[in-house]
């Protein structure tokens, strides 16, 4: 889950970098082109050739500004997504902690329950906590009993059910 989020972020960063590189190259090209066009004006005065060059120079400069504006939109969107995600993450964390408190989980049980929510099985939790698998299994069944569920999937569903509010127009 976290990995997939990171991949999306990396893909978005790459996209932003591509736009940025384009804008930078365009800016450099525009400056050379404008300087060259001015040189031509100095050499030959205003001719049709110069008029067309002027048009191209204008298009290049407009491209730079529009590219930069597009870049800003991309960055603002990425930032907004990051922010809403971090707010949701914080809210989920607070909610989970509150439920654990309500159920009266001990500190060790809370740790085990958190790993269970993140999708670890008893053996993995035991390895991560450096505890015996039997101990973790006992703690897990304590957690399930206190939460009033019978499986890890049911424990997870409790929180999904609490927090998931499907947007009304998402299906249409």
């Amino acid at each position: 889950m976290a990995k997939r989020l990171k991949d999306t972020a990396i893909r978005r960063d790459r996209q932003a970098l591509l736009v940025a590189v384009t804008v930078v190259v365009q800016a450099v090209a525009a400056v050379f082109f404008v300087a060259d066009a001015l040189d031509d004006v100095a050499d030959a005065g205003v001719t049709t050739h110069i008029a067309i060059e002027g048009l191209i120079a204008f298009a290049l400069l407009a491209g730079v500004v529009l590219g930069a504006l597009h870049m800003r939109v991309l960055l603002a969107e990425a930032r907004r997504r990051e922010q809403s995600l971090s707010i949701a993450r914080g809210a989920l964390g607070a909610h989970v902690a509150e439920r654990f408190r309500d159920w009266g989980l001990t500190a060790a049980e809370s740790d085990v329950a958190l790993f269970a929510l993140k999708g670890c099985d008893a053996a993995e939790i035991a390895r991560l906590r450096g505890a015996a698998a039997g101990t973790v299994r006992a703690q897990l069944s304590q957690v399930y009993a206190k939460a009033g569920v019978t499986s890890q999937a049911a424990l997870v569903s409790l929180f999904v059910d609490d927090l998931l509010d499907w947007p009304q127009n998402a299906g249409s």
Binding site: V24, A27, V31, V65, A68, R72
Partner: peptide, 19 residues
């Protein structure tokens, strides 16, 4: 030098319209 001037100009533009 011209390349540098272009980069500087872009950075100054970015100072007006950037994030």
């Amino acid at each position: 030098g011209y390349g540098l001037a272009a980069l500087l100009a872009l950075r100054l533009l970015w100072g007006l319209i950037g994030p």
